[in-house]
Design a protein around this nucleic acid. Structure first.
Length: 816
RNA sequence: GCCGGGAUGGUGGAAUGGUAGACACACGGGACUCAAAAUCCCGCGAUAGCAAUAUCAUGAGAGUUCGAGUCUCUCUCCCGGCACCA
């Protein structure tokens, strides 16, 4: 009696059985392997077929590693704080806590159908007070070390989300979440001193020889490098004529200093206040400042915008190189937050050049091109702006030096004259950490009139998020928590006097900046993580997720991890050893899957129609893992057919070790497949691993009988991809224990060697014949064979063989 | 503008400098069937040819090489990131 392949019943049965037996919890094993997915934010929309792609990949890897004898940690949890959860709740008129609970249930149900190895006993949720207790604890440690500070500087404010945002939360001047243009708004806020870690965040991407290399894609590393934006330059002092004041200017092009004819300050430069009394056109200047400061960064940095500025009449500074008195301007293209908020302007910078032309500010040149690619006449006559490195002219004692040499020499000279110093600058800013919204971790600080800012004692953590009637954002710069008097008013932990709680909450990224540690020790209420467990499991061996987190989550998590390393809470400097970024699955129409476009494919439907195993195989077979590919439901039938074939093969299994007629070739193919599949899974080349399995199965299908070992080995190779059918067939073969407690097959190098190889004969690089030859045949033997071939003869007839190239077991090329 | 990635049949894609198109989808033909589905077999880059076969063909153009999808240079287009950062 033949039993049909019925994925539905088989999958349900094994999912239940695996959960019951806890087959994945092999943490006692000596070798560990920690494979992690970027945990999802449980949105109301549920999963679409794009989400599981990464989860399936880690699952395949986790299953193979378990079979290879590792104790595998492969957990899952929920990143459930933050704006989207709150907005979903507001829109649907439910409390975020309830919405999150429901959404998690939906997600979990959907994931459950796909058959993952997740250890649900380690499930975590960033909104659980037992979890965010430790998020708050980390914040307190940062605060105690002076790495969290209160600031009143203008910050990015999203008028639609009604909250402050970090620089990382912007996308070309717009809110990453809702697309609104972000305003500048002065607001009291908490900021984390991420810039203090800038250098280490940069250098640990590529540690010097000996350091553990981060196996991340070059593109993600490059994005982080660009974001950190380290530059090495010189800070030059310009004395303000007739005063004690100094203007410090940062430049990477100190070689152009002799051509500096004016200095430009950012409109928010602090020195302006001190100089006010000396500015003769103060009204005009104030008007300009007012106009630019209210502008959003987007407007201010708009591309190709004409440069504007105002001269500070009556103010002059001394160019330290030329000792000339030069004018000072303010202009909105000079950014207050970068460098010193002041630049020296010269003819070798396009922006300065344009501005000078517009306002008739004098210019002069001091750099000459080294080769003649540009006309020196045009540069010298100020017709063209020359920005590149060259040779110095009109630069006194430094004439004749190359730009690179001059930067070194001039900086040395400025240092000697006490008019400058070497300076390293970063584009990255400190992390604006407070949000004026409800759905986040409360910042565990208390404001006391007498004692100032006081930390909530650790024993009182967590500071629980109170229930509140209205959690709508206020838009006043205060979070909705501020309106709950009973929560806000507390006693100062120090003096027991009246005090108020901090009402800002933490950003969405807080909880995800350390969650990988919690999975190691999810129930710990005494410490962030048990040190022994941490040392054993960290770092995460393989971390899989989308590229959109390159400069947000991945930067924040590295920053927190380094801090935790510094306070000796963790044992390593980097949290994620290997990072793999999956490509997006887009809809058939090429767009992102979204309710908005009505092009969402639900994995539940795919599982119902084809089974979880076929769905898993298809997602891995679609194309290269890191590449973005369009979904095509038609393609899933191929995976289903493949599994049907595997199912039918059981009828061919006999007790013979290797089937007689094809003994050698089947054994050879099997071992080649073991090698290919093992290596491909390790390298995330799942599509070619499955292709290899298909080739194997197609070959096995042609056999009359199959040995048990051949079939069982094939099932093992298939099991990471299609766990349910593999487990079912494994048991049908009479095995009592789970296939996942078995052992991953090893290939025998001797059995991969083929006795016969195909050698291609080319004449002048074109294929003319092919022979089967014994492996290792020498050139003479192959040449003799080739020359005897009729086809080859017609192509060399009447010509002389000038050269013969022979590649062992591969190719013979006759050049005539 | 800068940085990174890419372009191969009708489609998704494969290919340590060595037979381009593996594996699959779609399509066409056939077998089975009263019929259909499922399944199985055959074909499937283009052009010429009954065929054997020949020529062309990996975005465009050049180069290196006995031999290039793969290496080098120039260009076009697509995707992603950064961008008045001094």
């Amino acid at each position: 009696m033949k039993k049909a392949y019925t994925p539905k019943s088989i999958e349900a049965k094994w999912q239940k059985e695996w959960a019951k037996s806890g087959v994945y919890r092999q943490y006692g094993r000596k070798k560990k392997f920690y494979v992690l997915d970027m945990f999802p934010y449980p949105s109301g929309a549920g999963l679409h077929v794009g989400h599981p792609k990464g989860y399936i990949a880690t699952d395949v890897l986790a299953r193979m590693k378990q079979l290879q004898g590792y104790g595998v940690l492969h957990p899952m949890g929920w990143d459930a704080f933050g704006l989207p959860a709150e907005q979903f709740a507001l829109k649907n008129k439910v409390h975020p806590e309830k919405a999150v609970k429901e959404n998690i249930a939906t997600f979990k149900k959907q994931l459950g159908k796909i058959g993952f190895t997740y250890d649900w006993e380690r499930e975590i949720n960033t909104t659980d007070p037992t979890y965010y207790k430790w998020t708050q604890w980390i914040f307190l440690q940062l605060w105690k070390k002076g790495l969290a500070y209160e600031s009143n500087d203008p910050i990015n404010w999203c008028p639609s989300c009604k909250t402050g945002l970090a620089n990382e939360d912007l996308e070309q001047g717009k809110c990453e979440r809702c697309g609104s243009i972000v305003e500048k708004r002065p607001l009291r806020q908490w900021v984390l001193k991420m810039t203090q870690y800038a250098d280490r965040l940069l250098s640990d991407l590529d540690p010097p020889a000996g350091g553990e290399k981060l196996e991340w894609s070059e593109s993600i590393k490059e994005q982080q490098r660009n974001w950190i934006g380290r530059s090495v330059g010189t800070e030059v002092t310009f004395c303000v004529a007739d005063t004690e004041e100094e203007i410090h200017v940062y430049t990477t092009r100190v070689d152009t200093i002799f051509s500096c004819t004016y200095v430009i300050l950012a409109p928010e430069h602090p020195l302006l206040k001190n100089l006010e009394s000396r500015i003769s056109n103060l009204g005009e200047v104030k008007k300009y400042i007012k106009k630019t400061i209210s502008k959003s960064d987007l407007e201010r940095t708009e591309l190709n915008k004409e440069k504007t500025g105002v001269e500070l009449k009556g103010i002059f500074v001394i160019n330290p190189a030329t000792t000339e008195k030069i004018p000072v301007w303010i202009a909105d293209f000079v950014l207050g937050q970068y460098g010193t908020g002041a630049v020296f302007a010269d003819a070798h910078d396009k922006r300065d050049f344009e501005m000078a032309k517009k306002y008739n500010i004098p210019l002069k040149v001091s750099i000459k091109p080294q080769n003649n690619e540009l006309s020196w006449e045009k540069i010298e006559s100020l017709e063209e702006c020359f920005e590149a490195d060259g040779v110095l002219v009109n630069s006194g004692q430094f004439n004749g030096l190359t730009s690179a040499d001059a930067r070194r020499e001039i900086t040395a000279w400025l240092i000697k004259e006490k008019l400058g110093k070497k300076k390293v600058n970063y584009k990255m800013r400190d992390w604006t950490f407070s949000r004026q919204r409800y759905w986040g971790e409360p910042i565990p600080l208390i404001h006391c009139e007498k004692c100032g800012i006081v930390a909530v004692p650790e024993k009182d953590l967590p500071v629980k998020l109170p229930k509140v009637k209205s959690y709508e954002p206020t838009g006043t710069g205060e979070s909705p928590l501020a309106s709950i008097a009973s929560w806000v008013n507390v006693k100062c932990p120090k003096c027991r006097g009246a005090a108020k709680r901090e009402t800002n909450t933490m950003p969405q990224w807080a909880g995800s900046s350390w969650y990988y540690l919690r999975f190691i020790d999810p129930k710990n209420s005494k410490a962030l993580v048990d040190k022994k467990k941490e040392k054993k499991m960290m770092p995460v061996d393989v971390y899989v997720g989308g590229t959109e987190h390159a400069t947000r989550h991945l930067l924040y998590a590295r920053f927190w991890h380094k801090f935790l390393y510094d306070i000796k809470a963790v044992s390593g400097k980097e949290p994620f050893k290997k990072l793999v970024n999956q490509g997006l699955i887009v809809a058939t129409d090429g767009r992102k899957m979204s309710k908005r476009w009505n092009n969402v494919v639900n994995p539940d439907d795919m599982v119902a129609q084809f089974g979880a195993d076929a769905f898993r195989i298809y997602e891995m077979f679609m194309g290269p893992f890191t590449q973005s590919i369009a979904w095509n439901t038609d393609g899933v039938v191929g995976s289903k057919r493949f599994l049907e074939k595997v199912w039918k093969l059981q009828e061919k299994v006999s007790g013979i070790r290797y089937q007689v007629s094809g003994e050698k070739s089947i054994e050879n193919l099997l071992h080649k497949t073991i090698k290919k599949v093992t290596e491909d899974i390790e390298n995330f080349k799942f599509n070619t691993a499955i292709s290899a399995l298909m080739i194997l199965v197609n070959a096995l299908e042609k056999e009359v009988h199959l040995s048990r070992i051949t079939y069982q080995t094939s099932l093992l190779l298939l099991s990471p991809f299609a766990p349910h059918i593999s487990e079912e067939l494994w048991h049908m073969m009479g095995n009592k224990k789970s296939i996942f407690l078995s052992e991953w097959p090893k290939w025998d190098a001797k059995k991969i060697v083929e006795e016969v190889k195909t050698v291609v004969v080319q004449v002048n690089g074109k294929v003319r014949a092919m022979f089967q030859i014994a492996t290792g045949s020498d050139e003479e033997a192959v040449k003799t064979l080739a020359l005897a071939d009729a086809k080859v003869q017609t192509h060399i007839a009447g010509k002389q063989i000038r050269k013969v190239i022979y590649v062992q077991d591969k190719i013979l090329n006759l050049v005539v």
